[in-house]
Computed example of a mutant assay.
Amino acid sequence: METSSATNQRATGLLLVISLIVAIAFPVYNLAFLYPSFDELLKNNTEDEALRVANYLSSMLPVTLGKINKNDISEGFIKNLQTMQVEFKIIELKIYAPDGEVLYSSDAEDIGDVNKNTYFQQIVAKGQKYTKVVPKETKSLENKIIKLDVVETYIPVMKDNRFVGAFEIYYDITQKKALLSSLVSRSSIMVIILSIIFMAMSLYSGPHCQDHFLVDLRYSPLRGYLVC
């Protein structure tokens, strides 16, 4: 039979192992599951906001000739776009014709370009919204290097169940994403610190504390792991 000292050592070892597992598992969980969940939530919320903006704009946009065309985009409508862009912190906004031609863009250089990408022709043109989170310093769906963290959303405009054009809206989520990252990082650091404190207490606690712990374990399912 093991001596009391040997049993105490096994108890301390078990506590150290549990503390180490917690210290490793919680940050891994944050990175693998919690942070992606926050990222997806941020994406969905931003997509919903883009949808509300697009629906409002399309309600003000007269659609003639059965589709959105350049004549539908008046100077008054452009002023409304520019106002909403400031109020809703939209960093870029475009209006597409059904064939993918850019009829309006907050970046004038893009006007006249044609979006021939698969996601536009096979998803947006079929009446489905399409959203992607673009991390800063990476390429957007249009192959542009983006300097900020953004959510890029395409919202189709439908009239009588027909695709008549689309809006593309870029939202800056840099600050929101940084706050979420900070929150996840702080929670992970706190757990690691608490685990280290717990391990230190296990190592340096006196025999009296260990004896109380062992008395409790005599009547627990863990007894078999501590006593031969």
Rank of each mutant, 00 (worst) to 15 (best):
Asn80Cys: 03
Val53Ala: 13
Asn71Thr: 13
Thr64Ser: 10
Phe77Thr: 06
Asp99Asn: 12
Lys79Asp: 12
Ser74Trp: 01
Leu65Ala: 12
Glu101Phe: 07
Asp99Lys: 07
Glu75His: 08
Thr83Gly: 13
Leu57Ala: 12
Ile68Met: 10
Leu93Ser: 01
Asn71Tyr: 12
Asp99Ala: 00
Leu93Gly: 00
Glu75Asp: 09
Ser74Tyr: 01
Leu61Thr: 04
Asn69Cys: 10
Lys89Ile: 02
Leu81Tyr: 08
Gln82Asp: 14
Met60Val: 14
Lys89Ala: 11
Lys94Tyr: 00
Met84Thr: 03
Thr64Lys: 12
Ile95His: 02
Leu65Pro: 05
Glu75Gly: 06
Glu101Met: 13
Leu93Tyr: 01
Ala54Trp: 06
Ser74Glu: 02
Ile91His: 01
Lys94Asp: 05
Lys94Phe: 00
Met60Ala: 14
Val63Ile: 11
Thr64Pro: 04
Phe77Tyr: 13
Gly76Met: 05
Asn71Val: 03
Ile73Tyr: 03
Ile68His: 13
Leu93Pro: 00
Thr64Cys: 02
Met84Cys: 07
Phe88Arg: 11
Gly100Ala: 02
Ser74Lys: 02
Ser58Pro: 11
Ile68Phe: 11
Ala97Asn: 12
Val102Phe: 00
Lys70Asp: 13
Glu87Lys: 14
Asp72Ile: 04
Gly100Asn: 04
Val102Trp: 06
Asn80Thr: 15
Val53Asp: 13
Ile68Pro: 12
Glu101Tyr: 07
Gly100Thr: 06
Glu92Asn: 10
Glu92Gly: 02
Ser74His: 07
Lys94Val: 00
Ile68Ser: 13
Leu81Phe: 07
Ile91Gly: 09
Met84Gly: 12
Ile95Asn: 06
Leu61Cys: 10
Asp99Gly: 05
Lys89Trp: 00
Lys79Cys: 01
Ser59Gln: 13
